[in-house]
């Protein structure tokens, strides 16, 4: 068990290192370096910058060093939360991200909870009542959910909630609450605003997980141990929850890692459409503005979250399945 965990942890550290390298490469891939961009900006304001100035700045920032030295510095900084300076925001990258990360995480976790809370019961129902009216209805809803692009769903939901519920959907708070102190009313307001982004981000994942859960339960229902449990006198409900559902949770739990990736990578466009003050629009703008230190830092953090998600799903599997523990 301890060996398993330490091995996983080691893999995780290794993957993070590789991801940081990729992030750094992406940062470096943009044409020009920080000094040139800085110079171009200064020049635009009318200041006179000489080549010697740029060169001096390069030396000062360490941009004349070989790439691995730069990478080492960047990585050392990143580990302390110092991702450099965003010239678009004129603030440290870490600060800009820290402002918006909690919201991104809130939405991501709310979406994950939504996906699992809906797909597991619906998947079980569809498997047990296979080919019933309900199963078909959920299947159709599921295929629609898979087929509709996120941004379109976001626009439709925006329209519906604006038109019929008189709810402002852009952003996370109604205008009055934005700067108010935390209160129950503010939490309710936040939850009401979370519904649309969560549904938009979670629909296709939910549809996918429902299909997966249905298939997994159907698979288990035909297993010999189900017959032998029935022969022992368990009622259908006791049996269902105790064995097939419990077994079917394993493949579902194992996909948690890439569900998280999916939610986080789907977030920028949705966040943009819904005007959410989270890291989504931040990331998109960073790429558009070639604010590469900010973009690289976000890529690194997103990847790190995914790797952590995978680790968590490995841990869940260990808890759920003794066969893994025993190995």
């Amino acid at each position: 068990m301890i060996r398993f965990l330490s091995r996983r942890l080691a893999y995780m550290a290794l993957t993070l290192l590789l991801v940081s390298l990729v992030s750094f490469v992406i940062i470096q891939a943009a044409p020009g370096d920080y000094a040139e961009i800085f110079a171009a900006q200064k020049a635009a304001t009318g200041a006179i910058i000489t080549l010697a100035d740029i060169e001096a700045m390069r030396i000062e920032l360490g941009l004349d060093q070989p790439w691995y030295v730069q990478y080492g510095r960047w990585l050392a900084g990143a580990l302390h939360g110092d991702f450099g300076y965003s010239w678009a925001w004129r603030r440290p990258v870490g600060e800009v991200i820290a402002e918006r990360m909690p919201l991104t995480l809130t939405i991501a976790f709310a979406t994950l909870i939504f996906m699992y809370a809906v797909s597991i019961p619906v998947g079980i129902y569809s498997a047990v009542r296979r080919y019933s009216f309900g199963d078909y209805a959920f299947s159709i809803a599921g295929y629609l959910g898979l087929a509709i692009p996120n941004f379109l769903l976001a626009l439709v939901l925006l329209y519906i909630s604006q038109q019929y519920f008189h709810q402002s959907v852009g952003g996370l708070f109604s205008p009055g609450y934005e700067n108010a102190a935390w209160s129950w009313a503010k939490v309710q307001d936040l939850l009401a605003h979370l519904i649309v982004p969560v549904v938009v981000l979670g629909t296709s994942g939910t549809a996918f997980l429902t299909r997966a859960m249905r298939a997994a339960v159907l698979d288990e229902l035909n297993k010999m141990y189900v017959l032998s449990a029935r022969a022992s006198g368990l009622s259908p409900m006791q049996l269902l929850l105790r064995y097939p559902v419990r077994m079917a949770l394993n493949p579902i739990a194992s996909t948690l890692g890439w569900r998280l990736t999916y939610v986080i990578s789907g977030a920028p466009i949705v966040g943009y459409v819904l005007a959410l003050p989270d890291t989504g629009p931040l990331f998109l703008n960073a790429l558009l503005n070639q604010d590469m230190l900010l973009a690289g830092a976000l890529i690194f953090i997103f990847c790190a979250l995914t790797i952590i998600g995978t680790f968590v799903s490995d841990l869940l599997l260990v808890l759920l399945d003794p066969r893994i523990r025993l190995e």
């Binding site: 297993k223 010999m224 141990y225 017959l227 032998s228 449990a229 029935r230 022969a231 022992s232 006198g233 368990l234 009622s235 259908p236 105790r242 064995y243 419990r246 077994m247 394993n250 759920l320 399945d321 003794p322 066969r323």
Partner: peptide, 30 residues
């Protein structure tokens, strides 16, 4: 085939063992 009466019979008054001892138990329960 359904209901309390037949469930009370299965496993209590009639027991059954199967051909495949490998798959007759759930692998994830003790």
């Amino acid at each position: 085939a359904k209901g309390k009466a037949i469930e009370a019979l299965r496993g209590a008054r009639m027991g059954m063992i199967f051909q495949e001892p490998m798959s007759s138990f759930s692998p994830i329960h003790t």
